[in-house]
């Protein structure tokens, strides 16, 4: 088949800047994280679930009937994945890993880096703990990563 001749094209990009509010719930969460390295969740007084990340409303009971509770900076690994590709697409010797961590007693999960381990060390359901940045700034990267923890 004859190769098709491409018609002309023009380059384009769309660049818009935003400033997203973290909301009432996010405000308290990130303030506590920054000032006290504490992880806070909201507990629904109706169903008893503790939401982390927190919300001012329970998406299941659909009420604003929540109380703030502190959650331990440790939990279990719901699942994980690894990649051996660097930003520029080169093959790495040491992989980087992402996992979903459900903090102890909470409902929900945090997607974060899993470090100080290799994929073969990890198991679904294993205990992990948060490692905090020394000078927190009030965003989710104040948690540097999670690592395997002792039970």
């Amino acid at each position: 088949m004859a190769k098709k001749k491409a018609v002309l094209s023009i380059d384009g990009e769309i660049q818009i800047n935003y400033k997203w509010s973290v909301g009432k719930a996010g405000d308290r969460f990130f303030t506590e994280l920054r000032d006290h390295k504490k992880i806070m969740g909201t507990k629904c007084r109706q169903c008893g679930r503790i939401l982390v990340p927190p919300r001012i409303f329970c998406e299941e009971c659909f009420v604003e009937d929540m109380e703030w509770v502190e959650v331990e900076p440790r939990g279990s690994l719901l699942t994980f994945g690894e990649s051996y590709f660097s930003t520029d697409g080169k093959r790495l010797k040491e992989p980087w890993m992402l996992g979903i961590v459900r903090l102890k007693g909470s409902n929900g999960g945090l997607i974060h880096f899993i470090r100080e381990s290799r994929p073969e060390d990890l198991k679904i359901g294993m205990p992990v703990e948060a490692v905090f940045k020394s000078k927190p700034e009030g965003n989710i990267m104040d948690i540097l990563y999670f690592r395997p923890a002792n039970n």
Binding site: W20, S21, V22, G23, K24, A25, G26, I56, F57, F62, V63, E64
Partner: peptide, 18 residues
Amino acid sequence: MVDVSHKEMLFYATRHAL
């Protein structure tokens, strides 16, 4: 509306409607 996120605003509107 600096004190709420857009997701929280929508929750309030829906809660009011319900």
